[in-house]
Design a protein around this nucleic acid. Structure first.
Lengths: 220, 220
DNA sequence: CGCTCCCAATCGATCGATTGACAGACATTG
DNA sequence: CAATGTCTGTCAATCGATCGATTGGGAGCG
């Protein structure tokens, strides 16, 4: 699929230089095509960005719904939310970074839609935290600050984690589940309790160097 | 001072739209001067950005040295570091956001210098965390992940806190000191122990609406 | 022929930066 | 006092370059 190659090239450049500082000729060059051809497949610069962000937020939302549907325990729900979020940020750091930082680059139409999706996602966290605090499981003074601190902490993974680095994703997830549990004042939820749902690599995420040339799973 | 007005206008626009998406004519309009006049006072677009970032990082470094010099207890040192960082992010959210996100926009000269300052600052955190873990005060599995999670959590304050909002800075500082202590596995350091060093408003930070027209302290 | 894929060339607009000139304040002259 | 020179502050106009986007047409294939 030519669109995915374009998206991968775009995500790489957007994450490195920012959306506004990246030209469409540069995008074309990185994808190996002329800038005019880029419009044929992707429909324009802004459409590339909004498509990438929608892909990322849809996956986050799906993961959040999964995380809260298989147990009613707020601690386990929180651990699964964190595991899913950190897993996505770690496996798709560039996509996650672009999604987190470039909303302001979009026109008001796309911007409102994507902010709505982000709000939906964050409200899942808010509800879990609220229920955990109301039932006396979590020990928190200010629920809003706790949610913001937790989400920023998890989002930050996209700023420093690299799939070709020394740390493996599962270990980072374990560590962040531990942080999250400590943060809300409960004993640490084990990996068995929080489940080991495999994180998903998004199609728009550039393939790291150490995975280049590998069989991608499906028959080609 | 005309330079500070320009910096304030620039920080406001950079934080809202990003450095690359902000034109110098737009900067001039926001500062009430012609774009050519802007060069007379500030020397160019990139120089404005690097000046703002240097101001911010210098203040952070000074605050970190203060935080670690008045006590040898790793817990108290960590609490003071967090209090200082959160205080600066809360009082100067736009400057902090720009400083955190726009390093990539600079040329390699300024970029290297500022990355060096940031590394110096983060290494203060690293040393405190290392000593706290080595002496058995902190309960941590991976020191690097803990440092990164902690710093991202604190940096995030700049993304949501607004000085004209409902929360007061001290309360946010208290909450984040609590989170930090929980994160490293110690009992919460009280406000008395961590000190109440008043956070500083940077000259480049735009003045929030609710403070407009007030006497700024100095005569004249 | 028709269809898909692709690009060189070009559009008007805007970019960061520079130039040259004008206005006013102030000091130096006769 | 008036005339002149100098310096600072300011901006309209302009520089070449690049921006996102579009056009028209060529290459390859069925």
């Amino acid at each position: 699929m030519r669109l995915e190659e374009i998206q991968q090239a775009a995500v790489g450049l957007f994450a490195q230089k920012g959306y506004a500082a990246t030209g469409i000729r540069e995008l074309g060059r990185a994808a190996g095509i002329n800038s005019a051809t880029l419009y044929h497949y992707a429909g324009g610069k802004e459409e590339i960005l909004s498509g990438v962000m929608r892909t990322c937020l849809e996956q986050l939302l799906r993961s959040a719904i999964d995380a809260t549907s298989s147990s009613a325990d707020p601690g386990i729900q929180l651990a699964r939310l964190v595991r899913g979020h950190v897993g996505l940020c770690a496996l798709n750091p560039l996509t996650a970074k672009v999604t987190d930082q470039e909303i302001r680059a979009l026109g008001s139409r796309d911007q409102e839609a994507l902010i709505g999706m982000r709000d939906d996602y964050e409200s899942v966290f808010a509800k879990v935290i609220e229920r955990g605090a109301r039932t006396g499981v979590f020990q928190l003074t200010d629920l809003r600050i706790a949610r913001l601190a937790l989400l920023e902490m998890c989002n930050g993974v996209a700023n420093w984690y690299r799939p070709d680095g020394r740390l493996d994703v599962t270990e980072v997830q374990d560590r962040f589940v531990e942080f999250a549990c400590r943060l809300v004042g409960i004993s640490v939820v084990s990996r068995e309790e929080s489940g080991d749902l495999p994180p998903i690599r998004l199609a728009c995420e550039p393939v790291p160097v150490h995975l280049r040339g590998q069989n991608m799973g499906a028959a080609g």
